[in-house]
Design a protein around this nucleic acid. Structure first.
Lengths: 197, 197, 197, 197
DNA sequence: GATGAATGAGGCTTCATTCAT
DNA sequence: CATGAATGAAGCCTCATTCAT
């Protein structure tokens, strides 16, 4: 499957380069060179730089969604809270493994050009968070009119921002410690002694 | 002060356009046109497109830092927790008012080109969060080795992400409700009934 | 004869597309697609895009020449003038049937690249006109030093231009009316009343 | 007027090159080089290669129309027939002087891309012919239902084709002889002895 | 005979920057 | 102080052609 091989190599090269230098800062020349093919091959396989990026976004979002969804469902009888922790950890792990993609998502996602991708992200990754929160509402753990949409975005953005900052400024910090801090934050340990006091 | 006028108009035009189309997607031509001046004037006043953007980032970060710092300090005798809420509200308000800037920050901040700006952001805006958390540690409200740096980033990223999403997808939602949701999240209301149960 | 089939389909596709978009505006990809074959097949059968076009021009010029020659010779004892009318009608009919070819001829014939084809056209189609005019000279119907070459070109260009314009702007107009107008023009009806007066 | 100078030089260079090699065969690089400016200047002044060509077509058509109209109107009391001869001569002269333009017109005019230009040509240059023929109809020199539109196209195409052929194959032939031949053709000298006989 | 993935030279276009006015 | 015409490096993209299957 030569064709598929070529596409995959281009994919990988594009993700890496765009993560390093942004979409605009990455030339098709560079992508082709890193993939070890001629420039024309990029266009033969994807039609345009934009289309390549779009396919790339789709692919990443799909993988991210699957990772979070899997974490959210195992074990299926866990409390919403436990599942929330698992999803946050899954998100941190995903961006740890596919670090470049986090940067891409962060940097380019809000361009109006990729609104479709944003929609898919909302329905996919954010949807996982939102469903857990909705379960918590249903289970009586959150008040009826809790804004699960905003909260889902907040949790996702929190993990995303922390992931990027860790990569850029403190790559040596263990993932588990970061996760512990976030969990503590979410679970209200911050206010515990205050409320206790 | 014609000079200052021109600079301000260029500033505003640049922020708006970069927010809409990103840094790379914004041309100096477009900035000049929206500001109502000739293209040469941009270079006469700022030297280069990068320098304009850099000045713009600095300005925004400085204002943001001041907003957060002010919120953090009034009233000075409040508990760390109350001050944290106030800072989150201040951040939401800032991005509500200077919305385009949030997008700029979100999209371009992590480019290696603007590392200085990131550093200033850390020392400024994130510093405000971090100091409050440090106060909480000192006050015994958080355990000694709590990672205030990561938590500060998480809180900042949470408010930032929510601000942008609100502007893009739900601009009619009252700011206060969004703030209430975030505060609830941070304060552990999410887990309350669970822990209570 | 699969081979011949393929060649014919490529021929038709090429003529149509080149007529619509010109030689340079027509891609080998488009020709292959319209012919329903793979791109490589074009090169397998014709060697190059230029060679395909060349073969196409030759074929068209040969057919055109045959059409005109046939009209010029039947009946063989007609006056030069009657034969001229018949040739003009034949040319109009030819371009009515092979309309796209007229556009191709019109648009690309004068490129220095296809000088050979022009030569063949001169010797063929224009030659038919020229021979009739020469007959008229010989028959004393035209003065000895009448420039039959220029006149042949003029008559040919007249019919060609009118053919194209009819296809583009007035396809509903009956061919016979167009022919009548041209004949009237050539035969000097334009000046008749003047001369009569 | 540096700007206008530049535009004019680009104009001239473009006409020459496009006449020599066709629109598609002419690169913007070549146009810029012949005009003695940088490539970017072409786009600064005309926006695109297409726009340059469009402007060029417009300009040529306007000039051609003016030349023909002038010839058609002087002297104003001449018979329609005399004015027709004058217009044919004017067209030959125009293409003799602006020879390259004839090729451009001939080769590119029928592309659907330039339909506007074709419309202007019809209303302009062809209109001049048509008006004279209409005058002839009104003056009783032509029958009432004579198709002046088709005849105008025929006369125009005749002169156009002859002009190009002369440039390509017989540039030494005096213009006046060519004109004489065409006039003879139009005026029915071809048929004279026949009708007389 | 036919295919279609891959190529790479070459084209059009963009745009930050310069500079003479 | 400000202008805007001009620049040219650099980018995206097209497409005729090749070749292994």
């Amino acid at each position: 499957m030569t064709r598929e091989d070529t596409r995959n190599r281009l994919f990988r090269a594009a993700v890496e380069l765009i993560a390093e230098q942004g979409f605009a800062g990455t030339t098709v020349d560079a992508i082709a060179e890193r993939a070890g093919v001629a420039k024309g091959t990029v266009f033969y396989n994807f039609g345009s730089k934009d289309a390549l990026f779009s396919a790339l976004l789709d692919h990443g979002i799909q993988r991210l969604t699957m990772s979070l969804a899997e974490a959210a469902g195992v074990p299926s009888d866990a409390t919403p809270l436990a599942r929330l922790d698992a999803v946050v950890l899954a998100q941190l792990r995903f961006f740890d493994e596919y670090g470049p993609f986090a940067r891409v998502l962060f940097g380019e996602m809000w361009r109006t050009a990729w609104q479709d991708a944003v929609t898919r992200l909302r329905e996919g990754a954010l949807g996982v968070y939102e469903r857990i929160l909705a379960d918590a509402v249903e289970a009586g753990e959150l008040r009826e009119d809790f804004d699960t949409g905003t909260a889902a975005t907040a949790l996702f953005g929190m993990a995303l921002t922390v992931s990027i900052e860790r990569r850029v400024l403190r790559p040596d910090r263990p993932l588990e410690e970061v996760h512990a801090t976030l969990v503590e934050l979410i679970h209200g340990r911050v206010t515990k002694s205050v409320e206790a006091g």
